[in-house]
Write a protein that binds this DNA or RNA. Sequence first.
DNA 1: AGAATGGACTTTTTT
DNA 2: AGTCCATTCT
Length: 785
Amino acid sequence: MKPYTLFSDTPSVQEPSQDAAQAILSGLNTSQRQAVEASDGPVMIIAGAGSGKTRTLMHRIAYLLALRKAWPSQILALTFTNKAAREMRERIGKLVGEDKAKELWMGTFHSVFSRILRREANRIGYNQDFSIYDTDDAQGVIKGLMTAMAIDAKAVSPRAILHKISSAKNQLIRPADYGRYVNGVVDEAAARLYQPYQDQLRRNNAMDFDDLLIKPIELFQKHPDILARYQERWKYLHIDEYQDTNHAQYVITRMLAATHKNICVVGDDAQSIYAFRGADITNILDFQKDYPQAVIVRLEQNYRSTKKILQLADSIIKKNKDQIDKTLWTDNSSGDDITLLEALSEKDEATKVEQNIRHIHLNYGLPYRSFAILYRTNAQSRSLEDALRRGGLPYKIYGGINFYQRKEIKDAVAYLRLVVNPTDNESLKRVINYPTRGIGAKSMERVAEVAHKEGLAYWHVLEKLSQLGFPPAAHQALDKFRFMIGKYAAHLSSLPAAELARELLAEAGLMQELRQENTVEALARWENVQELLNAIAEYEQEFIDDGNGTIVLSRFLQEVSLLTDADNDEGNDNKVTLMTLHASKGLEFPIVFLTGLEENLFPLPQAAADPKQLEEERRLFYVGITRAQEKLYLAFARTRFKYGKWEDSLRSRFLDELDASVLKTEGGGRWSSQKATGIRTTATEAGRWRSGPTQGNSYRVSAMNTPPPLKATPKPPQGRRMVYDEEYTASQPIVPGQKVYHESFGTGKVIAIEGVGDQAKATVFFREVGQKKLVLRFAKLQVVE
DNA sequence: AGAATGGACTTTTTT
DNA sequence: AGTCCATTCT
């Protein structure tokens, strides 16, 4: 048996096939062909938007397989999202066979190297069952340390500190060297916390996202034998979206490519939009310096968009200084003008978008999936969602909080992590008293104290509880918890993962907690946890021959930490897509709406102040524009609801930078920034514009075409009387069975009453929102006769 | 211990 | 507007 059976080494292509290779090349243009054929040595593909770069990468991999330059397991392809990897694998499967595609190493940096780290964990002082911490978990660690080190969390936010530490890690700056970069209070705090933070993660047997990139480098540096093995193993390296790789990723790839030097990177400097996350554009700009013998291929033909859309995109990107020179062109038709939608409020903007979609859908028969609505910040999705819901258009939304970040899922996952990896203090903290089981802050304080003093994990403190003299009630509660978790930990290898998870969550009381709340929201949460359990069962099915329950569960938990919303998407439901501009990278849609083109929103105020960041915002705008195939709409609103109040806004400076010759207004008129109808005026003037019928409501034009809302807001029924009112309390008691009306919940039926006077509470079942418990003094219920 | 109430604060973008 | 946190109430 081989010590490391990560991959099957069976050659999957028996004979080199020139015919197959020719077939793979035949669908490509000259430049793409060149990129595919340059198979040995370093290659950089500078690919413009919509030039078929993913397609080219895919054909390149298929070509290597057809010519039998490598076995599938010797090819590594690193993509920006899991979804991109999955799609590429599917399409390669169609070219050369699914069995071969299955064995390719494909995925994001994070997912590929988390698997490597799992294998080699013991070489860097970790256990293979390590937890992977997201930003929330990591912030929890920082907060804990700040308390322990008496750093005021109000003076410096844990989030800011974490961001500093994260960027230091991205740049491979070690804790000991961080002092040199200190500049300001946040840096100081970060400098003090960096090493303790790393130590704490290790004690928790946990890694954060950055560790998944740094630890492989540490591993390779400390163990050249391991590095050599992977260098040998991966004969061909492919990296998509190279412009968005950070320094750590750069170092990893340089290490891995050192032997064979068969590295092929694909990217577009004009689409670099992740600098805030440490993406380092010099990686792509300096590729030729690192590999002087590199073949550079430019893909400049755009297959996606109309001439006018391309012209518009070109006009905006030209405003940026630093970029690799390239000229995009297309054979596509010139298409329609780009339409500018000027709205009075964000609600009006959303309505206009909705109406345009409806109109095109009805008159031209385009399916809903052809439409995308893009925005700068997640918060903007709400008004758009409302409009689509009112109009009855099906939609799906990416981003915001994804499935695995929901509270109930994080709670459930924390239980499972704790069983798999008991030293995970963060997970323990999260669930030890949820659902409540009498372990309060006091008890946990003491546990933390002992843990800190003796350098133990919380779990190990629980294990020696009897020596610590806790009060009997607390002792019993803690011991019961330890016993429960310990029992499942002991069953890890004997029980199937899905079954174990189900029983644990039931015994912990999590399912019941969600059930008994008896609201629509709680039911949805309960269903989410069920879905998690199903996912475990499904995963287990796939790995049924792969060993025991331990491996299934801990691998599942690790993979799940790296999934995003888009990864869960089937992609084939017929719905309008809503997402941030960032999330739209790599995608295309026949019709695209870019919304919220306003100063202080796009570009964001922080970015507008800094030329570098402003250029990145501009690239983001470029990315948005180039998502569109047929038709593009640019929308902005004069007022927007922000931080709880209405704010006037000015149209984005980006609109003034555009080539106006391909722009028209909604009415069909030519648009030019000079003649623009008072758009970019002062705030006061804009305020005058807004003072129509009512702020943020429907307006003359749009109101006429807007269909009535599907579900009218609940109206107080006639013949009502106030039920709770100082005067009436005595004379108007509510009794179970009584029908009542509540201002925001609508009508409902009283199920039970408890307490008297000011303490009186009623349990009411509302038709719209389910069961609620209300304090009569505040609820202002009205009796419905 | 735990629930409830009131206040401050918030929003970039994400693997 | 919603969320998180601290303080107060039961």
